[in-house]
């Protein structure tokens, strides 16, 4: 079931289009990662989907409600906006109580404490937010976004500025929320985080989505998707390079020697056994074979290099 459907969404500030027409769908219970450099249009897109900014063109549907029914959408979403400040004279508990009232959600004190506990703010609930560290404010941002268990949660840079331990806790929490059928839409600069927790990833560049898909699909789009390293006898290395280029050049590329290893690049995972089989057929002793898949970082920077 599609929880978010975005069609040709555009945003114009003065004469300049910041978002130049994005189209994508997000499935229910999915963790959707939105990647991009600063100024790519990620936050503007998330702001349009959450009612902070008004779209100039295009449309979207969230949970079956169109962008014309934004007040209905607000009832089923939770939002952690980017760079938002808090009421510094409020405690964390007062924030949750106030935000729950805003959403017409009945939030018992015990439930508010459970939410704060889940984001690692246990013991800080009665402190004024003015005394909170940056990381604690981030955690409070996530806590307030999940009040009333919304169907869709938008998190703008949820772990930026957090220490690795806190970031890991938040990632775990995000995965837990998704496993409870919550749809998570997050933006991040942390490529390894997105690769680790997101089911679908969209890379945004200069106001448009340049790549979108699962990690496997993105690897498929990447020119040198799989790198295979095979450890063989040194004396056999040079002759095999020649043979590989001659016999199996249709599915491998960039064959070279790197130290003890024979390195080559393959298009598909299914080409790995074919290559191993070929090497065995040539009576080459294989001491070790290692696959190095393209990371999201490779894919992300490859696109940047293409420009």
């Amino acid at each position: 079931m599609k929880m978010i459907q975005v069609h040709n969404l555009k945003k114009k500030f003065k004469d300049h289009y910041v978002v130049k027409g994005v189209t994508f769908d997000v499935e229910k219970g999915e963790i959707f990662g939105f990647l991009g450099k600063n100024g790519a249009g990620k936050t503007t897109t998330i702001n349009m989907l959450t009612g902070i900014t008004l779209p100039s063109e295009g449309s979207f549907v969230i949970g079956g409600k169109t962008n014309k029914e934004m007040n209905e959408i607000k009832k089923m979403i939770g939002v952690m906006p980017d760079a938002a400040n808090y009421y510094y004279d409020f405690t964390a508990l007062e924030h949750l109580t106030f935000f729950a009232k805003l959403k017409n959600v009945k939030l018992k004190k015990v439930d508010a404490l459970t939410i704060l506990d889940s984001v690692g703010l246990k013991g800080h609930e009665k402190k004024k937010v003015g005394s909170y560290s940056f990381g604690m404010k981030k955690k409070l941002g996530i806590a307030q976004a999940i009040i009333g268990t919304p169907s869709v949660v938008f998190l703008d840079e949820p772990t930026s500025g957090l220490d690795p331990e806190s970031a890991a806790e938040i990632q775990q929490l995000i995965q837990q929320l998704a496993s409870n059928d919550m749809t998570i839409f997050l933006t991040s600069h942390n490529l390894s985080e997105v690769e680790k927790i997101c089911d679908t990833i969209a890379i945004m560049e200069d106001g448009v989505i340049s790549k979108i898909g699962t990690m496997e699909q993105l690897r498929g789009m990447y020119k040198r998707a799989i790198q295979l390293l095979v450890k063989i006898k040194k004396e056999e290395q040079h002759s095999i390079v020649h043979l590989l280029k001659r016999d199996v050049g249709d599915f491998i590329s960039n064959v070279q020697i790197s130290g003890d290893y024979l390195c080559c690049e393959l298009w598909r995972e299914s080409d790995i056994p074919k290559l191993i089989h070929y090497l065995s057929g040539q009576n080459i002793d294989i001491y070790e074979a290692r696959v190095e898949k393209a990371t999201l970082e490779d894919i992300f920077f490859d696109r940047a290099a293409d420009r």
């Binding site: 009612g51 607000k74 400040n85 805003l102 959403k103």
Partner: peptide, 13 residues
């Protein structure tokens, strides 16, 4: 200016 409005506007009309 403080951007606290972002919390209000995403929860209320």
């Amino acid at each position: 200016e403080n951007q606290t409005i972002r919390f209000l506007v995403t929860k209320s009309s």
